[in-house]
């Protein structure tokens, strides 16, 4: 390395340090700009990924049909393929109907959204949805499915938003256990070993009589992001610790199959 190289290295370090000195709001604004620029690429990637997934699901259905209809499969390949296509559309129709029904039943104003992608980093659990401030989505708005809470929005750009998933250690929700006065803080784990990680409900009474199968809902404390009554999960295990009790909770929403979600934008 010569003198010029040292000067260039110094300049590069200074540039990096300037970025590091940005406020969190400025960093969020830069990330929002990046999401806006990357939106077409992310949407294209999501479409390709969706097609691949559909193809995989189709092949699985074909296996089932082969097992059930061995005799017919041998003689009627064309009919089987058509049946498979209809089956796929029927499932999609059922899923969308269920989602629409939930939208009608809900006490909140809900904005339907789709998951574009999941975070590729190892240390954070986030997902991107195809709604942004163009559709009046704001930061810190709850996101849920028909089954339960999914997380909350963090960075919002015009057409795309980042959702901090409930399975992330940083996503902490005030929760209450159905049929009891027990309240605690629900959060994810630091590093999840599977696509459907368990959650932990901390700060419970150590002598709380919690049984597996009891449902957990958002407590909706004053000033909280999440309204009361959103399903969070089901208690799987309770253990008393030295000072408090801790429950292991199985999430209500299926995090391995997140597809259609809703952003809660306030009461109807």
């Amino acid at each position: 390395m010569n003198k010029l190289h040292f000067i260039l290295l110094g300049v590069a370090i200074v540039i990096a340090v300037i970025f590091l000195s940005f406020s969190s709001e400025r960093m969020r604004s830069w990330q929002s700009g990046y999401l806006r620029v990357s939106n077409p690429a992310l949407q294209a990637g999501s479409a390709i990924s969706g097609q691949v997934e559909k193809l995989q699901k189709g092949l699985k259905t074909l296996d089932e049909l082969e097992a059930e209809n061995a005799a017919l499969v041998a003689s009627n390949n064309e009919l089987r393929a058509a049946s498979q296509l209809v089956g796929g559309l029927e499932n999609e129709n059922k899923r969308l109907r269920a989602s629409l029904d939930y939208r009608e039943r809900s006490a909140f104003k809900l904005l339907p959204a789709q998951i574009v992608s999941r975070d590729a980093s190892s240390w954070w659990n986030t997902a991107k949805i195809n709604r942004g401030f163009g559709q009046e989505v704001d930061t810190a708005q709850p996101v849920l499915t028909a089954d339960g809470l999914v997380g909350r929005t963090t960075t919002v750009s015009k057409e795309i938003s980042i959702v901090l998933l409930l399975t992330d250690e940083n996503c902490q929700v005030a929760a209450r256990v159905e049929g009891t006065n027990e309240q605690g803080i629900l959060s994810g784990q630091r590093v999840a070993g599977s696509a459907t990680p368990e959650l932990v409900l901390n700060f419970l009474n150590r002598d709380a009589n919690l049984q597996p199968g009891m449902k957990v809902f958002t407590a909706g404390v004053s000033g909280a992001v999440f309204p009361a009554g959103i399903p969070l999960g089901v208690i799987k295990e309770f253990r008393a610790r030295e000072l408090d009790g801790q429950a292991v909770v199985e999430p209500a929403a299926d995090f391995s199959k997140l597809d259609d979600v809703f952003v809660v934008q306030g009461s109807k």
Binding site: S24, E25, Y34, W124, T126, T154, T155
Partner: peptide
């Protein structure tokens, strides 16, 4: 950094 930035509140 822009792809993985994790901003929660402040």
């Amino acid at each position: 950094d822009l792809a993985f930035l994790h901003v929660i509140g402040d």
